[in-house]
């Protein structure tokens, strides 16, 4: 699979740009967190496209960003569940 480039993204409409990035991110996240992959991908897609491209080129940066997202997601889920007694 050829790497996703900024020019490939620029040629697509904004909605499709996120789709393209998500399709690249999802399998990488799935390998780390199979049960949370869809939601983590959704969270990471809130990041700027240019930064997402950098993350795709840098596995270490992506790894730490995924761990960050997992921590935020878990904290969110805990606060959701404690809110309703």
């Amino acid at each position: 699979q050829e790497p996703l480039t900024a020019s490939m993204l620029a040629a697509a409409p904004p909605q499709e740009q996120k789709q393209m990035l998500g399709e690249r991110l999802y399998p990488l996240i799935l390998a780390m967190h199979p049960s949370l992959a869809g939601k983590i991908t959704g969270m990471l897609l809130e990041i700027d496209n240019s930064e997402l491209l950098l993350l795709l080129e840098s596995p270490e940066s992506l790894h730490s960003k995924i761990e960050e997202a997992v921590a935020v997601l878990q904290a969110h889920q805990i606060s959701e569940s404690t809110h309703k007694s």
Binding site: P14, Q15, K18, Q19, G22, E23, L25, Y26, P27, G38, K39, T41, G42, M43, L45, E46, L73, H76, E80
Partner: peptide, 25 residues
């Protein structure tokens, strides 16, 4: 209130990404 129950939006491979509200043309 349960305003943030649906956060975060879930990405599903092969399906159009609908995490953001569509911008009306």
């Amino acid at each position: 209130g349960s305003s943030s129950v649906n956060w975060p939006p879930e990405f599903r491979p092969g399906e159009p990404w609908k995490g953001y509200p569509n911008i009306d043309p």
